[in-house]
Simulated scan of single mutants.
Amino acid sequence: MEAFLISAGIVALAEIGDKTQLLAFLLAAQFRRPVPIVLGIFTATVLNHAFAGAAGAFVTTLLGPDALRWVLGLSFIAMAGWILVPDEIDEDARPAARYGVFATTVIAFFLAEMGDKTQIATVALAARFDSLAAVVMGTTLGMMLANVPAVYLGRSAATRVPLKLVHGIAALIFAALGVATLLGAGDGLIG
């Protein structure tokens, strides 16, 4: 349960103001069909985060517990710094609905999530916790918590959220996870 809740919370906070949330705004403004957009975001997230989670779980087979602890601890601390860098998306980069709203959303969101903060966080979380399923379900829930309101409420809701505060909280959580990992907290969960 800890893996699920931490994964959901961290990714929900990290996703606010992220480039994939900005993409959700663009898709909602362009297509004005929230249901296929939300379903597309969900599908793309499950696929992307399952892949990222599998990569994170695989990393645990390559590294010994001590090396893994240092890699994960430093990775979480690096994520704390990276989360403070605001993302932008080119307003002219609107996806064409060549394949319909759902398929366009799946493709655009999956590609935008590649190498994104939340995907990298999913890799690290899956390496940190034993339950791959809990991490993927948690990170997917976190993505949905941040993106469904973006699709339905649009940019007006986002302007009411103090991004610096949200990113600061997410950065503190990542930093705390990094320090705790470096200090050996949860060693039974690693590897």
Rank of each mutant, 00 (worst) to 15 (best):
V35G: 01
P36L: 12
I37W: 06
L39A: 11
A44M: 03
T45V: 03
V46D: 03
H49R: 15
F51C: 10
F51E: 11
A52C: 07
A52K: 08
G53Y: 06
F58A: 14
T60I: 02
D66C: 01
L68F: 08
R69D: 04
V71S: 08
L72M: 05
G73K: 03
L74I: 10
L74E: 09
F76G: 05
F76M: 02
F76D: 05
I77P: 04
A80Q: 07
G81P: 15
I83G: 02
I89C: 02
D90C: 03
D90G: 00
E91F: 07
E91A: 12
D92N: 11
A93C: 05
A96L: 14
A96V: 05
A96H: 13
A97H: 06
Y99D: 04
A103S: 11
I107A: 13
I107F: 09
A108T: 02
M114C: 11
G115C: 02
Q119F: 14
Q119T: 11
T122V: 06
L125Y: 13
R128D: 12
F129S: 05
D130I: 04
A134G: 15
V135E: 13
G138K: 11
T139F: 05
L141F: 06
L141C: 15
M144Y: 02
L145M: 05
A146W: 07
Y152I: 07
L153V: 13
G154Q: 05
R155Y: 07
S156C: 13
A157F: 10
V161H: 07
P162F: 00
K164W: 00
K164M: 00
I169H: 00
A170Y: 00
A171F: 02
I173Y: 01
